[in-house]
Amino acid sequence: MVAAKADWLVADHWIGFTPSDDTLNARARCQSTIHSQAGVGYVVEYITQTFGEPNPGFETDPKYLDERAAHSLVAGRLVAVHRLRPTARSLREIIGEEDFADLQDKWAKSGERYRWSVAFPIIESYSVVSRPYATEIFSTTAMRRVFGHPSATLRPLNDEERAAIADLVLEPRSTSNAWLGIEDEVAMAEMGGIDPRIRTLIEKDLAASAMEGLTAEQRVKAKLRAAWLANKFAKQRRDAGTLVCDHCGYDAVARASGTGVRPRSLLDVHHKKPLDEGVRYTTVLDFELLCPTCHRFAHEIMRVARLATG
């Protein structure tokens, strides 16, 4: 994790930041700042002790009252870890015109209707299981440095602060914007260069995945991206010299030594969580290298599990 974000509520599918004004330059500067702070790392979310007061007329708004009550349950706690994605889409596009107007009506000050208008979709998200108070995790010095003053951007963490949260237990959360991250990488997948054998194996892994909520075109793209990602994973393992079965330890390099057989050809790429593809923002961590026997066994285990739950 590279930074922290202070929020009033647990973020669901986007995190917003308020630029200095409503000009294109201000929004571009704000987005560039956040992108440089987060990079490809993860952001831990902290819920502030205080909750804002809405504009006059919204004090008894049911949604506001629900949000205030929800805030009281998590105030001062570390609640989630997110991976953000820079996008050219505006907050208005992400949440819709009606919700954007309601947000500005309720919170914009002095008619400046650009509150949180620089939006970063959450493409990968995890709940912090224990939801500890931040003061239980960070030192007094760290709390003062990271959260002791208002900030319109992220709060970059130093090595000591990252070490303090390294052991937090996380649980994956679904996020409706995962597809935005997937779609951004489809173009790279469409450029080709995917090993046909890997593509066939991944198609087999995803055969039982319904990819619910996706159009037929999106399902095709999700499968293509999965094959591209699997191909990337296989190259990383080959370059690292770790061509062993992740289940039984079968050493393909030792077995092929002196035979002229390519060690990589003795191992299959397997998607560990095919039902998540197209729904969650998957990464190379969702793949593994297996010998043919372990790969067949993995599929049998998945088949038995489907029968037991279906």
Rank of each mutant, 00 (worst) to 15 (best):
E190L: 15
R115K: 13
L267W: 03
F297E: 04
A226Y: 02
T23A: 02
P274D: 14
A178Y: 04
R131G: 11
L168F: 05
P54Y: 04
F100Q: 05
A227G: 08
I182T: 00
R29Q: 13
Y42F: 11
T60R: 08
N231F: 07
T215P: 10
G249L: 13
E183L: 10
T87L: 01
P274A: 10
Y133V: 04
R145P: 15
S257F: 02
C294S: 08
D184I: 03
H13R: 14
A3D: 04
P121I: 03
A210E: 06
S265T: 14
R144I: 10
E136P: 01
A252T: 09
W228Y: 14
C291S: 02
E183G: 05
A11H: 05
A108R: 05
L266N: 05
E67G: 08
S127I: 08
L78H: 02
F287D: 14
P19Q: 00
N177L: 14
L24A: 15
D66N: 08
I95T: 07
H149Y: 10
G260V: 13
F120V: 11
I198H: 02
D251V: 10
E300W: 12
V118T: 01
G52D: 15
E93W: 04
E45N: 15
E212V: 12
H13C: 13
A207D: 01
A6C: 06
A207H: 11
T135P: 09
F17T: 08
A308Y: 01
K232N: 12
D239Y: 03
L290Q: 06
L73G: 03
G193N: 08
V43R: 01
E203P: 12
R262Y: 04
S110A: 10
D205N: 09
V269N: 04
T175K: 04
Y42E: 10
F51G: 07
Y42K: 07
C30Q: 09
S265N: 14
T141V: 15
A189S: 06
P19A: 00
L266Q: 11
A305L: 05
Q236T: 08
A101Y: 09
A252C: 11
R255S: 15
R255H: 15
C291N: 01
L103D: 04
M1N: 01
D167K: 09
I123F: 08
I198F: 01
G96W: 06
A189L: 01
Q218I: 01
L275C: 05
K232P: 02
G111M: 11
D159T: 13
S139G: 09
A166M: 02
F100E: 01
V253A: 15
V253N: 15
L103M: 06
I34N: 00
A230M: 15
R144G: 08
D239L: 10
R89N: 12
M302T: 07
F17A: 05
R280H: 10
E217W: 01
G39T: 13
A101S: 12
D195R: 04
W14P: 03
R155K: 05
D184K: 03
G76L: 13
I94G: 11
A142R: 00
R144T: 14
G278R: 11
D159I: 12
T18W: 00
G213S: 09
P121H: 00
A298S: 15
C248P: 07
L266W: 05
K221M: 04
K272T: 11
L275V: 11
M143W: 05
Y114C: 13
L170K: 00
A11K: 07
P121E: 02
G260A: 12
T18Q: 00
E45K: 14
F297P: 02
V304I: 06
E161D: 06
D195S: 05
F138K: 01
